[in-house]
Design a protein around this nucleic acid. Structure first.
Lengths: 227, 227
DNA sequence: ATCAATATGATACGCGCGTCTCAAAAATTT
DNA sequence: AAATTTTTGAGACGCGCGTATCATATTGAT
């Protein structure tokens, strides 16, 4: 079965990147073409990438059996630099700000890709609910969880674990593509305004978490908290 | 000719709800069937609703020309009660908390519907980027903007307009379905945990906005985001 | 009761995605 | 260089969505 052989290849390459030969070459060509198209704002189907890369549809589908696989590959490709990034500061708020400054422009650059990924996740979720398609991973917790936890790591000792997690969770609400959707598409803000609001919210949350831990427990959590 | 007549009906009904006759009856039947299916977690296509409601595909498509129209109708139907709701308090933080308490369970009850709506918006956005489909509304700013602005209305006088908007924008990041996606699907929280985190974050943001305005400008904004 | 208007249903069509088959081309081995 | 394996391309197929057409049933007015 040539098929299962080639299917396996898609996975093998994940492990051994330096693979040589026509397979790897064609795959890279497709990946680069797809990345280029997506950076231009498109959300190309496998067929469209095939045409743009000047390979046949059949070949394209051999390497990327679905648009989902394609998008995922582009996301991984484009997100690489973020994942290894480290803030130089050891102040939590500063680190979070640094993370946002680094990640948000990159997310914006790959906006179409991230939106496509979100859309596909929603698709998969819907199928899952419908009964079709069994125990797949459904929503893949991207990298945001780890990135944020790492950013607020300096608070790990100073905050109760519960509060630490709550902060990480709250921050993750203002970190992903959803921010772009809400602030740019719905509110009509520009990139600068979007980053500004996200930064402010992030800072406010970090400060709130720290402040609470200082003046003891839920000092600010009672009804209105009149300061 | 018959078509444009019936097409118009879809719009007319929005204005005159009490319409009588077979048209309204069938439409309601479909809407209720669709709502039932979606509450059960499904994201039915027009054809599926047609089958469940025991009307022909052709008829179904006359009333809801696309899945998007169907979802939109169900959203409006299910969201109605929220839109007219009013908090009895005049404390901003309390009002926001009330809003969340009221809206979040309802959003959860219609989770599949909201996710479908988000997915369709992303779809439309992608098509738009691709050049196909012209000047459509793209992302329809739902009701969240108005709801939140209304909730924090008590701060309208006490906060500079710029800060007021920033707060509304930040709050809208932790208000929609996206919250469910991030906290339930990605983090794996349950409904209670999700509401808890969202509530905490909302309160923290409101308090931060108020506190800043009190101790004058950007008293807490020093470290990050200098502008 | 009759007749026009209108709602419905059955059917067929185009289109795009993903799958499959098979033959030609390219690469690798012997 | 010849033989074999691997990669590629061309085409056909099924499927689901949305559209269009036409005949039939239902409704409402005269």
């Amino acid at each position: 079965m040539g098929i299962s052989r080639q299917q396996a290849t898609t996975d093998d390459d994940a492990g051994e990147r330096a693979e040589r030969g026509p397979r790897a070459r064609t795959k890279r060509l497709m990946l680069e073409t797809a990345t280029r198209l997506m950076q231009a704002g498109a959300t190309p189907s496998v067929s469209e990438v095939a045409e743009a890369a000047e390979v046949s549809r059949a070949t394209a589908y051999r390497y990327f059996p679905s648009q989902a696989a394609l998008v995922q590959a582009v996301v991984d490709e484009g997100l690489g630099p973020i994942l290894t990034w480290q803030s130089t500061s050891d102040d939590a708020e500063r680190r979070v700000a640094d993370l946002f400054d680094n990640a948000m422009p990159r997310i914006e650059a790959f906006e179409a890709t991230f939106k496509a990924a979100l859309k596909l996740s929603l698709d998969q979720w819907a199928r899952r609910q419908a009964g079709t398609l069994g125990g797949e991973p459904a929503f893949t917790r991207g990298h945001r969880v780890d990135l944020l936890k790492e950013a607020i790591a300096p608070l790990k000792g100073r905050l109760p674990p519960r509060d630490f997690n709550r902060l990480a969770q709250a921050l993750s609400l203002i970190f992903g593509v959803e921010v772009l959707i809400v602030l740019k598409d719905i509110w009509g803000l520009d990139s600068r305004g979007t980053r500004f609001v996200a930064q402010w919210a992030a800072g406010a949350l970090v400060r709130a978490a720290v402040a609470e831990s200082i003046d003891g427990g839920d000092g600010a959590n009672t009804a209105a908290v009149v300061k």
